[in-house]
Write a protein that binds this DNA or RNA. Structure first.
Length: 843
RNA sequence: GCCGGCGUGGCGGAAUUGGUAGACGCGCGCGAUUCAAAAUCGCGUUUCCUCGGAAGUAUGGGUUCGAUUCCCAUCGCCGGUACCA
């Protein structure tokens, strides 16, 4: 658009209102103990996922969810709620560190510049945040409490009987040794093959691997000693407690899938004098186990391998070790080697060969399986290739081939299980295994413990110390928090898995005997609990005061409404739930779930229908849209594009459309004079207009229903209809127009406040209460009735609203448009739906 | 493969206890205004047609007086996950 005249002068008032809101702290929300706090008001905590303040600035995807929450927040405020709607910065992160390495600037400097830019952009969109509650994960005052929460985890263990975390001090009191306690802490050190990224010089959590690979980073498996969090202890609760939450079913499914619960049994096989446990979901097929497979990394492999197979086994193990996970996954062709050892099947005493093969993963179950080739696809494929016996033990229900049949059926060739349905056979064999000490029922999860340490500079250091002599670890005293990373010139990845801090000898050496842990926490640490800090952001005594916790939380999920991208379905959302449960178990919060209701906005695609990316050149910059069309137009367009949860392409023509609508509203109140000045139009008058009153109240109804159900696109279309009616009317009663401005206010706050104030109203719209719907205005005296013959529309009747069924039927049958289609036919049936239609069945 | 979601005009999309399919916006066409243009306002815009109608919500069936809506099957697209035993 050229910079000549604008259809309405948004550039002359948008920043004015933004300053007004900021200076008057219009959206300040006092909490318990603060001046102006009104405990009698119901609270509503509505939360956006806080952004990572990247150097690129805001993406048009950000204002999508942010506008939605802003609308709901402003609406709730106008409905008398004490609305907590904060914003902050997830500011630790690799890009800042990488940028710092490249430019030599400290990440704190770039992070500050980026957050300033983001804050400016958000303020220019007119969001009603309480900026007094802004948090920043890199702020030492915040880091202090992130580290404090980590120590809560470090100092806790999971009590299996009570299914909750408890302080390890209870174990100390029972006389447990330091080593025993270290084995059960929720934060523990563990040596295992982890995801190491040579290109980034750090390890990654399972959940993050794909994301970074997509960005072109390399990731490989490498055994390292790392800090882990024992999230697996919460697997069952993370599934169960998901159920009652008001989240999209698809996101719940994603989490359930990731946690991956399977019911089955553990069965113990004797392998050359060793007990080898396998996990199976089909214990009913135990009689059909014709061989066993161990993962190549299984600890028993070397010990049981027969002398003659030693060479073959060793070279196979070596080949697997050199393969990355990716190569292993790509290679679908089954490979494996016999160990020469045999296992004894506990149910029938049969000797079956033991193989190793890379289709069995060390990381799942026990890293060993019983192979039932007749009823498992993978085992079947393997058995065919290596000519191993295939024994049928399940009779299919239909006439399918039993080979490779994996569905439930009836047990055969299975001794004491013969004739039992799969379900009953499972129960019976599990019972038998229990009685004979050969196994038991077992629930297995795919979820792994959370790899929590990173080899980075720009993250929270672990507040932990190592004893140089004993190798024992211990916590830094709470009084020494926050523990900040030392100032360093060079924090390039060294390839040393201890991370860049290892080079800072002064910092590492805590005392003669003790030295600091040099790893740092992942970015997720800060985002795991930020929603709690918003409730009490300046507290120096507690991470969250009990009074604030008590006021802002709910009993069934802390935050009332959480909005943010579904890319965090198995990352942030899972981690937060885990931390929240630990804090709950330890008595720091009263809820066991952080987010009562959650909603994920859809992706905004480029104008070409593809995902926005620099390389495609289809990125839309919110700043450009704001300068060309205004903040209100951007807000309104993003809400008008379509259903909030749907992916949808950007269309600049659509922005122009809503911009025209806003200009239309503007021109109801203003008219442009000869000198191109906007002056009051005189169309807003004292008086009444029944038709406009009706459509205004219809609009109240539609808009409030639409906000409650997040259908903002239909809210906007109904306001457009109302505006069209106003435009056609010429003169508009002032009361109605002011009411309309209140409806528009959450969507287009600048324009609505400007008009409201220009009309001489002194009170801000956003501080007024929501209009009250007068249902009586919606009652129609005459209504239109549809008349169908055999389901086809034939006539429309205008009748009194209170017409009787009989009269309506008679009038419909007599209508000439109807009789043309009923003449010569017999009327078989007449369906009358009062107020809607009449359907005549005739043939 | 498995899990989840989605298929409606030229385009974004409306329409839910099953009851006028296509609201609203974009685009396009016509008209008003204008010296002219932009902007603005008004009218029209699913398709076909013999202008009376006929067909139509991915495809095929079913339930119903009546289906975009409910049920079954098929096809297509998107997201997640993947040798998880």
């Amino acid at each position: 658009m050229s910079d000549k005249r604008k259809p309405y002068p948004f550039d002359q008032f948008e920043s004015k209102w933004q300053s007004h809101w900021a200076e008057n702290k219009t959206f300040r929300t006092p909490g318990p103990g603060e001046e102006g706090f009104d405990a009698s008001k119901p609270k509503y905590y509505i939360l956006d996922m806080f952004p990572y303040p990247s150097g690129e600035g805001l993406h048009v995807g950000h204002p999508e969810g942010y506008t939605a929450t802003d609308i709901v927040g402003r609406y709730k405020r106008m409905n008398g709620f004490n609305v907590l709607h904060p914003m902050g910065w997830d500011a630790f992160g690799l890009p800042a560190e990488q940028y710092a390495i490249k430019t030599g600037q400290h990440p704190r400097i770039t992070t500050e510049a980026n957050t300033n830019n983001f804050r400016r952009q958000l303020q220019e969109l007119g969001f009603g945040y309480d900026w007094d509650r802004e948090v920043n994960t890199t702020d030492p005052k915040y880091v202090r409490w992130t580290q404090w929460i980590f120590l809560q985890l470090y100092n806790s263990y999971f009590c299996d009987e009570d299914q909750k975390a408890k302080p390890v001090s209870e174990l100390e009191a029972k006389g447990w040794s330091q080593d025993q306690i270290d084995d059960v802490r929720l934060a523990f050190i563990h040596e295992a093959p982890v995801n190491w990224s040579p290109s980034m010089g750090t390890v990654l959590a399972n959940e993050e691997v794909q994301e970074w690979k997509d960005k072109g980073e390399t990731v490989e498996r490498r055994p390292l000693r790392q800090w882990m969090l024992r999230i697996t202890k919460y697997a069952q609760r993370l599934i169960d407690e998901l159920e009652p939450l008001d989240w999209p079913e698809s996101i719940k499914a994603l989490q359930r899938n990731w946690i991956g619960r399977s019911e089955g049994a553990e069965v113990v096989f004797d392998v050359e004098g060793n007990d080898v446990t396998v996990f199976t979901t089909r214990p009913d097929t135990l009689f059909g186990a014709t061989y066993m497979v161990l993962a190549p990394e299984h600890p028993l492999v070397a010990e049981i391998t027969a002398i003659g197979q030693k060479e073959a086994v060793e070279s196979y193990v070596a080949a697997c070790a050199s393969k990355s996970d990716m190569e292993r996954g790509l290679d679908k062709e089954k490979t494996g080697v016999a160990t020469g050892a045999f296992a004894i099947n506990p149910v029938n005493g049969e000797k079956i060969p033991v193989w190793i093969a890379d289709y069995v993963m060390m990381g799942y179950g026990s890293g060993a399986i019983m192979a039932v080739p007749a009823h498992d696809e993978r085992d079947f494929e393997f058995a065919v290739k290596f000519e191993l016996p295939i024994v049928q033990v399940v009779q299919p229900t239909g006439d399918q081939d039993w080979q490779g049949y994996t569905d439930p059926g009836t047990a055969i060739n299975s001794g004491f299980l013969d004739g039992l349905k799969t379900k009953d056979a499972k129960k019976k064999v599990i019972h038998w295994l229990g009685e004979n000490g050969k196994g038991e029922k077992k629930i297995q999860f795919k979820l792994r413990d959370w790899l929590f340490s990173r080899q980075r500079y720009w993250g929270e250091p672990f507040p932990l110390l190592w004893d140089k002599e004993s190798g024992q670890h211990s916590a830094v005293p709470e009084s020494e928090l926050p523990l900040l990373q030392p100032e360093m010139e060079d924090f390039k990845p060294t390839g040393d898995p201890r991370g860049p801090l290892i080079n800072c000898t002064d910092w590492i050496n805590y005392s003669d005997k003790l030295q600091r842990e040099t790893n740092t926490m992942p970015q997720w640490a800060g985002s795991c609990w930020y929603y709690l800090r918003y409730c009490d952001p300046h507290n120096e005594e507690h991470f969250l005061s009990p009074e604030s916790e008590n006021y802002w939380g709910n009993s069934d999920g802390f935050v009332d409404f959480y909005v943010g991208g579904k890319e965090h379905a198995v990352l942030h959302l899972l981690y937060s739930r885990f931390w929240h449960k630990v804090l709950n178990d330890l008595g720091h919060v009263k809820t066991s779930e952080p987010f009562k209701r959650y909603f994920a906005p859809g992706l905004i695609m480029g104008e070409d229908g593809q995902k926005m990316s620099k390389s495609l050149g289809n990125v839309v910059n919110p700043d450009d849209v704001v300068s060309n069309y205004g903040a209100d137009a951007l807000r309104l367009y993003e809400m008008f594009m379509g259903p909030l949860d749907q992916d949808k392409p950007w269309a600049m023509k659509g922005v122009e459309g809503v911009h025209r609508f806003l200009a239309k509203v503007w021109r109801l109140a203003f008219v442009e004079n000869q000198e191109s000045q906007w002056e009051l139009s005189g169309k807003i008058v004292a008086g009444e207009n029944a038709d406009l009153a009706k459509i205004t109240h219809q609009t109240i109804k539609k808009v409030q229903e639409a906000i409650e159900t997040l259908r903002f696109n239909t809210a906007i279309s109904s306001m457009m209809e109302c505006t069209n009616a106003y435009t056609a009317a010429g003169e508009i009663p002032r009361d109605l127009f002011l009411t309309f401005l209140k409806l528009l206010n959450p969507f287009a706050p600048h324009l609505s406040e400007e008009i409201n104030s220009a009309l001489g109203e002194s009170e801000l719209l956003s501080e007024q209460s929501w209009p009250v719907l007068d249902e009586s205005l919606l009652v129609e005296s005459e209504i239109q009735i549809i008349v169908q013959v055999n389901g086809k529309l034939r006539a429309r009747l205008t009748v009194p609203a209170d017409i009787s069924k009989e009269d309506l039927e008679a009038q419909a049958l007599a209508d000439s448009n109807v009789t043309t289609h009923t003449d010569g036919k017999t009327v078989r049936k007449v369906i009358v739906i009062p107020g809607k239609l009449v359907n005549i069945v005739a043939n």
